[in-house]
Design a protein around this nucleic acid. Structure first.
Length: 397
DNA sequence: CATCCACCGGAACGCCGGGTTT
DNA sequence: AAACCCGGCGTTCCGGTGGATG
């Protein structure tokens, strides 16, 4: 296909009206099924309109429950309403995962100059105080995925942000912390915990019906009319509902399915496209997990892979795996780990969903774990084959 | 019904690499 | 540079166990 053709096909899409509306960071005009959270958050933040400092808020919820979208949504509204007297800064702590970067990000927003490295943290804080003071108004600092920051760097930034008001006269700062780790507060200093947790907000997962509704609305914005049927949306919703009601996943599947349909030049998104999309997403997930596993874990997985490929009749048990594993290890000329460790590795693989393991009893012949591979063999193959050592030695892939 | 297999899985500990503090 | 802390991997030791089998 020539470049011209590619461009032409893209411009001439039969599927998309506005593809951007399906991207993960798009915040729609309406957020259905989050009314309660919107109202609560709005109530908490409303005092900002009259110039008093809103309480700090802590927001919990699993991935894809609308935490970020709702927060941005409410803050945008309030900023419009208050014209310049209220502002907010959104900082994602996964991307900015050190104290310094978070503070620098905040500084940038306030127009304070800080070098991207080199200053002592205390100096950055000093400049920030000045910057905040100059701002003259209320500033809401949103720290998304804040658990990433705290687990890595401690809570000194949070401490600073919750205490900085004492040094300010013409400005006020509130903090919104967002996390999907429910037991995250354990990592916090008691003082930070109490000042940050002035208000708490929990986002429950969406159910299948709600997901379908969201998908339908989004499809109207992003796709051309009649491109996707209710049946198809229902299917996507059902899949995501099973994954803890993860709306991001639902939208992701829909986007992928639309992309696939578009590439095929189809004018409708079908169940087949959805299946392909899901496979692709799952495959990427599995392959990524496998790629990043430590060598011995890979070896164990390779053993399971070989066993399930070669003798399909036999049950795959821990003992069998261990024997195979030792064989592979010796071929590589490396010391095998103990069977005890293998037991743990099998459990680890089970937890991430690459394999399924369950203990059974064979009476006289003992008690063991029966293992089967839980993702398509091809994916395992692809993940393992990315390791040059395994690839050359066992001819996988 | 007791036995006994082939593992399970908890506990405690050592080692190692890295990051931080002094 | 030295001391220190931390988390992950791995080991040793070992008590525990479901149920087919004799």
């Amino acid at each position: 296909m020539s470049i011209e053709e590619i461009f032409h096909q893209y411009l001439d899409s039969k599927v998309f009206r506005d593809r951007e509306k399906l991207l993960p960071d798009y915040v729609p005009e309406e957020l259905p099924h989050r009314d309660e959270q919107i109202v609560t958050l709005a109530k908490v933040l409303a005092p900002a309109l009259t110039g008093s400092r809103p309480s700090n808020v802590f927001i919990y919820g699993l991935t894809g429950t609308g935490k970020t979208a709702v927060t941005k949504y409410v803050l945008r509204k309030i900023r419009e309403k208050a014209q310049h007297k209220v502002d907010y800064v959104y900082i994602n702590c996964r991307q900015n995962n050190t104290s310094y970067r978070v503070l620098a990000e905040l500084a940038k927003h306030l127009g304070v100059k800080v070098p991207f490295t080199g200053l002592a943290l205390g100096e950055v804080m000093k400049r920030l105080v000045q910057g905040l003071e100059r701002h003259r108004g209320i500033i809401v600092v949103v720290l998304d995925e804040v658990d990433n920051l705290v687990k890595r760097n401690g809570d000194d930034v949070l401490y600073f942000l919750t205490r900085v008001n004492e040094e300010l006269t013409s400005s006020k700062v509130s903090v919104i912390g967002i996390t999907n780790d429910l037991k995250f507060t354990e990592f916090l200093d008691a003082r930070v915990k109490s000042s940050l947790g002035e208000e708490e907000l929990v986002f429950p997962p969406y159910n299948a019906v709600q997901l379908e509704d969201i998908l339908r609305r989004r499809a109207r914005e992003a796709l051309k009319d009649g491109v996707v049927d209710d049946e198809v949306l229902k299917k996507v919703a059902a899949i995501a509902a099973r994954q803890n009601g993860d709306c991001r996943l639902a939208l992701d599947i829909l986007l992928k399915a639309a992309d696939i349909a578009d590439r095929e030049g189809a004018d409708k998104i079908t169940q087949v496209h959805v299946d392909k999309a899901r496979n692709e997403i799952e495959k990427n997930l599995a392959v990524d997990i496998i790629k990043t596993m430590p060598l011995h874990v890979k070896l164990v997985l390779a053993s399971i892979y070989l066993l399930s490929r070669d003798n399909s009749s036999r049950m795959i048990t821990t003992g069998l795996i261990y024997d195979k594993y030792k064989e592979l290890a010796s071929k590589l000329g490396m010391e095998p780990v103990t069977s005890r460790r293998i037991s743990d590795i099998i459990n680890e693989l089970d937890i991430v969903g690459i394999i399924n393991a369950r203990v059974i009893s064979l009476g006289r012949y003992g008690r063991t774990k029966v293992v089967s591979i839980g993702v398509p063999l091809k994916n395992v193959e692809e993940g393992l084959a990315s390791d040059s050592i395994l690839k050359t030695l066992f001819g996988i892939g």
